[in-house]
Design a binder for these strands. Structure first.
Length: 118
DNA sequence: GTCGCGGCCCTTA
DNA sequence: CTAAGGGCCGCGA
């Protein structure tokens, strides 16, 4: 099981204009308790270049990883470019922009991981 | 609704 | 080997 590859794949599947939480990603990876490692993976860019890491926020909707981007406001800007409103506190409204993944999304991912042996 | 604490598990020193 | 800390989370008060 390669947690980081899984995290990258999940991240890649976050729909445009929505955000996901660290815990949500960890869960979809099949590692419910590894939310913190998601942050580490993205921060260290172990996940790869074409990964929309800006769509990942903490469970409160706060852009806790903003400091790890090239410029402090980059994450906010990228999100706003997708139509996601970010307030002055660097927080997004999860009710509105949170990715509500379906059960089928989760199933499909597990299947994908199996096929890819990751 | 808020706040705090303990648990989590990987990485770095 | 131990220890500390991190882009976190859920629960209980």
């Amino acid at each position: 099981m390669d947690f980081y590859k899984r995290a990258a794949e999940v991240c890649r599947r976050i729909p445009w204009g929505t955000v996901a939480t660290y815990g949500q990603i960890a869960l979809l990876c099949g590692f419910p308790k590894n939310a913190r490692q998601v942050g580490f993976a993205l921060g260290r860019r172990l996940s790869g270049p074409d990964i929309p890491a800006h769509r990942v926020v903490n469970s409160k909707g706060y852009l806790s990883g903003a400091a790890s981007f090239d410029t402090p406001d980059l994450q906010k800007l990228l999100l706003e470019k997708e139509g996601v409103r970010v307030d002055a506190e660097r927080t997004v409204d999860l009710k509105r922009y949170g990715w509500k993944n379906s059960f089928e999304d989760a199933l499909e991912l597990q299947y994908f991981f199996d096929r890819q042996r990751i």
